[in-house]
């Protein structure tokens, strides 16, 4: 990963964090790291536990940030989410996977889009 992309990612996560807080999400964890991977934000939205993946890109790229959350990435997030639930003993929590897409453009405020319930687990990842 180039230095620019890393900075863009950090800026995006910061923007997403503020955005979600304003939306009324109670942030529980940021950059929850396990050997399986990382979840950007874990938050509480009303009674639901939300695992949020933040993707940032500049508007000069040809794809949307949300397109980068592909099947492989989703599966990774699901695995980490399961390990989080297990570690916290929250087996029967009501949860959801959200995706926040941040598009940076030169000289403007970043454009933020929240996709609620962006994807679901499939039968391979159940406890």
């Amino acid at each position: 990963m180039t230095r620019e992309r890393q900075i863009l990612g950090e800026l995006g996560e910061e923007a997403a964090f503020e955005f979600l807080r304003k939306k009324g999400y109670r942030i529980l964890e940021r950059n929850y790291k396990t050997p399986l991977g990382e979840i950007d934000i874990i938050a509480q939205d009303r009674e639901q536990l939300v695992f949020v993946e933040v993707k940032s890109l500049s508007d000069t790229s040809y794809i949307l940030p949300q397109e980068m959350v592909n099947k492989k990435k989703q599966e990774q997030i699901i695995r980490v989410a399961l390990s989080y639930l297990k570690a916290k003993g929250l087996k029967s929590a009501d949860c959801r996977f959200d995706c926040v897409a941040v598009v940076f453009s030169l000289g403007n405020e970043p454009e933020i889009e929240l996709i609620k319930d962006a994807f679901q687990s499939d039968d391979r990842y159940l406890y």
Binding site: D94, C95, R96, Q120, S121, D122, Y125, L126
Partner: peptide, 9 residues
Amino acid sequence: IAKGLPSFN
């Protein structure tokens, strides 16, 4: 319908 990771099987 149960609580847990959202999925459809």
